[in-house]
Amino acid sequence: MKHCSLGRFFKGMNLTVFTLVMVFLYIPILILIIFSFNDAKIITGWKGFTFKYYILLLENKTILEAFRNTMLIAGLSTLISTILGVLGALGLEYHKFNGRKLFSALIYVPLVIPDILMGVSLALLFNFTRVNTGMLTVLIAHITFCVSYTIIVIRSRLEGFDYSLVEAAMDLGAKPATIFWKIKFPLIMPGIIAAALLAFTLSIDDFIITFFTSGRGFDTLPIYVEGAIRRGTITTINSLSTIMIGLTLLLVVTTKRIRKIVISSL
């Protein structure tokens, strides 16, 4: 009997916890979405439905510029850090060289050190080497932290890789290059896609590191949003955020499809 009531207790708890998590996670987002259609300059209550701020958003050159910058940085840093990730993971997994253990450990550093430290240190580095801050420095900074994630994700995929498949391919007459493109690459593809998506999201919403490495005149969306909120124009930010949420959802939904298409095309 006791066991039974305890079970019921936990069942009740589960539901409560679940509900609370959902509420705290999604209610703010919901409010944000609703108020992006609110016809008022500040959040003071519902004043009527409008698309005004979406139109304002599209007319705002600075925002469009920031959006373009964000996408450019995210796209490039994803591409480069994923390629570096594949090479790094393969190298660390299959080649024995001096300092391999050290490198493996160093890969984890950007994951654990605070963003602010990384931002400041990169800023100091760029200052010290007299590199003009701007798009290039932001790109370098993003690649720096993304590459840790891509290597770790792709490497975890390699660890589960059955090496006898490579032997089987070799046995059937395949040379090393063919084995890479026909066997290894397709099989670690899910890992590569996951790594790329991770890098993309990390790059898109990075604020702190970008803040320290962008300098004046090169704004990404997070940087712009921060500035805008400081200046007090919150309404366009609501609509901007809503669009971003929509895009993210779209990405999540299409990921599975993309994966399937990519794998079947190989």
Partner: peptide, 20 residues
């Protein structure tokens, strides 16, 4: 000779079929 140049083929214990 490397394995890919030998006129020998192997059946592996765990079959090692290419899963993809």
């Amino acid at each position: 000779l490397p394995p890919y140049k030998r006129q020998v083929n192997t059946i592996f214990q765990n079959y090692s079929l290419f899963p993809h």
